[in-house]
Design a protein around this nucleic acid. Structure first.
Lengths: 149, 149
DNA sequence: ACCATAATGATGTGTATACATCAAATTCGC
DNA sequence: GCGAATTTGATGTATACACATCATTATGGT
């Protein structure tokens, strides 16, 4: 049952994707180095922008993060004044928005993001990336279908 | 520069892959639930099996983990008696091997792994998975090429 | 109107991941 | 043979991520 070193052997789908996530994580963090923000924070902040006013649990859902992990993840962003949290749509929930400082930081980081994303997708192929993104989404659907069994 | 909710908007490659990693991570951990081991530990142990006798830094390399992260990651596995660490090929390095307990655990977990991996790849398509794995590898190569610039 | 169920966030706990720094050992070029 | 560079692991520090549990609030069925 053990996979061999051969690339044609059975590759664990999860481990394969996690490995790639680490490689990409380091590459993108490298690109963002010096800005003060990392790629996960970048993604969280962009999602908060898209969903300003919505409960934080919606942000967690979109990012496929456990909601309690998101609440912890935003703590340093609140501490550093990048985002602020306000009451949500009811007494239970909270929503977040970027502060002026956070918006400035995001804009600055976006320049670096544009650069690495453009270089990466340029190398990989724009159409190939579109196809790959679709296949990744399909794999996620299969994982969720398996989970529901 | 902000992505819209449209699936055709510019998707961050890193964020997209990390999201999928979380979805797959939860699905595989769910499948392994009750065995006492999670999918990252499963992957580490399988790599240790493949590389028994080699320095731990080789294991970290293959898994694309920072070597210091791997040293920390194996600490609970040593504590729980799944692996043991012995001197490596020189005075600097250490190697690891599975204990009898660890081998038993890995075998037990492998049954669950077979099940979810089989179901997932069955749904996704065996040939499609092969193609996807190749494209993921190509994306990693592009990321490393970008990093080297 | 009431109660069970669900949603939301806080907290506990534990593992995952990475960069930075340092010390010891090995390798390699001269 | 020597010294610079590299390799390897330990440690510090900080963020990432998930499941479990609990309390509060909202929703929905009767």
């Amino acid at each position: 049952m053990y996979t061999s070193n051969s690339p044609n052997a059975i590759l664990c789908a999860c481990t394969t994707v996690k490995k790639l996530a680490r490689v990409l994580g380091r590459a993108y963090d490298d690109a963002l180095a010096g800005t003060g923000i990392n790629i996960t924070q970048f993604a969280v902040m962009r999602c908060i922008v898209r969903r300003t006013g919505e409960p934080l649990s919606r942000v967690a859902e979109e990012l496929e993060m456990d909601r309690t992990s998101l609440y912890r993840a935003i703590a340093p962003m609140i501490r550093d004044g990048w985002i602020e949290v306000m009451p949500g749509t009811d007494a239970r929930s909270r929503a977040a928005k970027l502060t002026r400082k956070g918006s400035g930081l995001l804009a600055k980081a976006a320049v670096r993001w544009d650069s690495i994303q453009g270089g990466l997708i340029g190398c990989f192929g724009k159409d190939a990336w579109k196809v790959l993104a679709g296949e990744l989404s399909r794999l996620a659907d299969c994982a969720e279908a398996e989970k529901a069994k």
